[in-house]
Amino acid sequence: MATKQIIHGVFGDEVPMMEACKKLRASGIRVKDVFSPFPVHGLDPVIGVPRTRLAICAFIYGITGTSLATLMMWYMQIHDWPADIGGKPNWAYYFNIPAFIPITFESTVFCAAHGMALTYLLRCWLVPGAKAKNPDPRTTDDKFLVYLELNDEQAKKADAILKDNGAEEVNYKGTLYIEPAY
């Protein structure tokens, strides 16, 4: 059975932390995650975080909103009960498009914003009652934590790299047992 060690490299500043991540990657060590009190710009490509596709989701939710509003107004105002209010009949959808633009726009924004927000919360599993995801509570204050899961040989290498690049602490947080792949 293979084992992996859980290592927390704790830094007091984002610049050495980033440097350490670069070195780790250069020596072929995978940085599993980094926990930081704020978004560290430029870190994603260093540790190999792919670009999020949430914006694409937002676009899809948005056009869904546009379609829903169009369908709703066509059905209610043109098809189901074309009321003639103030001598302004509702004969055809294209006839009324100018008056339908505001609600179509609002519905687009409504669906895009709420759809994306909901997707974001669920994708990150940010829900009421969820357990705190940071392994060390200081990472929401002023510490930057490089989270590694490595075998003994890599761990030794990583330990040196972390310490050489100004890690304030290197904590060993136990062992993970990896089931061998069949």
């Binding site: 980094v34 704020f38 978004p39 560290v40 670009r51 999020t52 949430l54 937002a58 994306m116």
Partner: peptide, 29 residues
């Protein structure tokens, strides 16, 4: 309860920034 279990992982921050940016883009009009 209010924090929804936030941990500040790099992936979550990257999504957070994207969401903020797109929401800003939607809120502007």
């Amino acid at each position: 309860l209010l924090s929804f279990g936030w941990g500040g992982s790099a992936r979550h921050w990257s999504r957070f920034e994207e969401v903020s940016l797109v929401l800003a883009g939607l809120s502007t009009p």
